[in-house]
Design a binder for these strands. Sequence first.
DNA 1: AGAGAAACATAGCTTTACTATGTATTGTTG
DNA 2: CAACAATACATAGTAAAGCTATGTTTCTCT
Lengths: 134, 134
Amino acid sequence: MAAARLTRLASRDVSSLPHAAMRLMGRLDELGPSRISDLAKADRCSQPTMSNLVQRQEESGWVRREPDPADSRASLISLTDAGRAELDQARHEAGAAIATRLSQLPAQDLATLKAAVTVMHSILTLEPLEETPR
Amino acid sequence: MAAARLTRLASRDVSSLPHAAMRLMGRLDELGPSRISDLAKADRCSQPTMSNLVQRQEESGWVRREPDPADSRASLISLTDAGRAELDQARHEAGAAIATRLSQLPAQDLATLKAAVTVMHSILTLEPLEETPR
DNA sequence: AGAGAAACATAGCTTTACTATGTATTGTTG
DNA sequence: CAACAATACATAGTAAAGCTATGTTTCTCT
């Protein structure tokens, strides 16, 4: 719950990019050129949702679509230069929202947060540990 | 970013309540009977958005609206028993989604997360430290 | 008492999300 | 190797969640 509220606190101050767009661009920055279905999996949304999102970002010029040489059914989506600039801007805005608060914290608390970020990243890469892999 | 992804990881596995509804119910659980404008402020959304959300939750029977005895313009919104049960269910679902991952972490990491939660709560109650209080 | 402020509702729009389904390509198999 | 199933994506239609602008009612204050 704390993570959710903190996230909302930061994301509400981002005016340059809607949140879903920001998630998409962040993934592209992280993964490089990717297929729509892979992006949908990474973002945990449905394929049509990602299809629609990509289309809108393409129209905004923040994302580019190229045919996948390995599979004519698929496309490879990647960030444009404008898209990367927009992502940087949005990240800056999100950071600024909490920076003024972080600056009021003692160094000890900042260290705690830093350590927690590492742990959270490891959680995100962990598998759900299902006994039923279908 | 880590907080955002962790939040999304948990919230995507909640089927019983849409996310905005869950935020509203959580606030009501925390604050008790509240005015719509106060709920909007707490959730950092606009007043019409909260108006709309409350209406839908009212129709679902999860929230109750009573006149504010102190001000006939305002209403006091509160959880119904069904709403509280639904909130419990949703929280359980959200917890279950990450519990299987948390259980794979060493105790040291869990302690780090616990400490970070405390710090995050303090961030949430901090003011943005603006020199221009408007 | 009248003016302005506050609390909420309504209208109209956009974004984000879903399921169901269609189309084209790829893979598999009898 | 032709036929069928599976895969990758698009489209259609709908709902939820968000916004600004604006209207109505009630308070508050001079």
